[in-house]
């Protein structure tokens, strides 16, 4: 049971960590100052959740690995994040599509964790859901603005949704032994996402292509590059402090 729980918590921690790293790439490069601050703030929230989850995962494993060891000293095949979060940022529409789908999954997930039997996960869920609600609010605002905006913004937002949508299926892969089975969150996710897409005059993509494998450590080629940048300092100077 503890090994299963370790994998589950590690997956959620890795989702948040890799999402934080990707969002952080926008810092100083966002389309406007306010958005730069918003993306950095959201990245910080994700990092905060990642630290709590990875710390707990390390304790469950019982092998003496702390949050830093898990974040900086694992190779790509040892990461358990979903593919969605490791995908490149693309243009602003792709970033917003990724954040929209991620937060529409994380919000009900954290909400369900808040009521689960595991005390630590319940505390993390109760804390993180408040922040996820802001992320969902912010990203759905942009999806509506861009989708129902100009011809060009509509075209790019639709392309972004089409590109990212297949990666949402992996989020809801069944895990009946987990404190919260992600399969049970799919209906709520669709009930959140579909009205926003409709209001944004966007078409919900079909469900034919369903890439996955992240939870088993099988990633896209993008993760290795992300990790190389995230881990380089720690690997070059192990244990360095300042």
């Amino acid at each position: 049971m503890s090994a299963d729980l370790f994998d589950f918590v590690l997956g959620l921690g890795d989702d948040a960590l890799i999402a934080a790293q990707r969002l952080g790439e926008w810092t100083s490069r966002a389309p406007e100052m306010e958005e730069d601050i918003a993306l950095a703030n959201i990245a910080l929230d994700q990092l905060g959740a990642a630290r709590l989850l990875l710390t707990y995962a390390g304790e469950l494993e019982g092998a003496g690995r702390d949050e830093d060891a898990l974040a900086y000293l694992r190779g790509d095949r040892e990461f358990r994040n979903c593919l969605l979060v490791e995908l490149p940022n693309g243009d602003f529409a792709v970033t917003m599509a990724k954040l929209f789908f991620l937060s529409a999954y994380q919000l009900p997930l954290y909400d369900a964790l808040a009521g689960c039997g595991d005390e630590r996960l319940a505390a993390i869920g109760a804390k993180a859901r408040k922040e996820s609600a802001y992320h969902l609010d912010h990203s759905s605002l942009w999806v509506r603005r861009l989708g129902d905006g100009t011809e060009e913004s509509h075209r790019r937002m639709q392309e972004a949704v089409d590109q990212v949508w297949p990666y949402t299926h992996e989020l809801f892969a069944a895990d009946p032994a987990a404190p919260v089975d992600p399969a049970g969150l799919r209906a709520g996710f669709e009930a959140t996402v579909e009205p926003v897409l409709t209001e944004a005059t966007l078409t919900r993509p079909g469900d034919g292509f369903t890439p996955g494998g992240g939870r088993q450590g099988l990633h896209t080629e993008h993760l290795s590059f992300l990790l190389a940048e995230m881990q380089v300092l720690h690997r070059a100077h192990p244990g360095a402090r300042w």
Binding site: E34, I37, A38, A40, N41, L44, D45, Y134, D137, H138
Partner: peptide, 13 residues
């Protein structure tokens, strides 16, 4: 509201 996020995590502009 100018921006939903501000100079620290807890503030909006």
């Amino acid at each position: 509201q100018v921006s939903r996020f501000g100079s620290t995590a807890c503030k909006a502009l």
